[in-house]
Amino acid sequence: MGCFHSKSTLHYTPGYEEPTVLAAETPFTVSEVEALYELFKRISSCIIDDGLIHREEFQLALFRNQKMENLFADRIFDLFDIKRNGVIEFGEFVRSLGIFHPNAPVADKMSFAFKLYDLRHTGYIEREELKEMVLALLHESDLVLSDDVVEIIIDETFSDADSKGDGRIDSEEWKEFVSRNPSLLKNMTLPYLMDITLAFPNFVVSSEVDDSEI
């Protein structure tokens, strides 16, 4: 599955953006953006080698199975696909992963997680959405909970998070809830991103731009 693209072909990849631009907008250095390009090319060439990550390629990279259906992976793909054109371009990949960087602002992580859970894009996390997500998790795991227990857990979650008591969690309530329960953001930080250049060193060796010049 591995591939190597020379610098001369790199600039003709659709959706490619200059590492210096992406480094300026994200927590990554230029070298790290170039290392991410190596990862991006590997994922985006898994099925269709067109320089774009398709949903099936994203699933294949996550689960080693392109047919694997997963509500949360689907939601993450949709949020990475900022232009909503059905594919993830390189710039979208880097900007979205930037939110998962250990040094990214917590507010960005909170906002991303809120959008992830706001399944119907209403600006609120509603009870029905939360139950749908819990049931999806139970369906994909070996965890067995009775419907009564699920209802109790959702009731208690809402009584804790829905401080205005209107039956839905808005972004302000979400921020306050996460502040009291910071473990809810643990999936929003990827320690791998701190040493991405060690995992994907090829581009660092041939980097065109010295980070110290930026």
Binding site: M1, L39, I43, A61, L62, F63, N70, L71, F72, A73, D74, R75, I76, L97, F100, Y117, L130, M133, V134, A136, L137, L138, E140, S141, L143, I152, I153, I154, E156, T157, D160, A161, N181, S183, L184, K186, N187, L190, P191, Y192, I196, A199
Partner: peptide
Amino acid sequence: TCLNAFDIISLSPGFDLSSLFEKD
């Protein structure tokens, strides 16, 4: 119970992007 619904959801492997960085 201390378990909240978001803790349960966060257990999904679909949420774990670290597997993107694993090489075959």
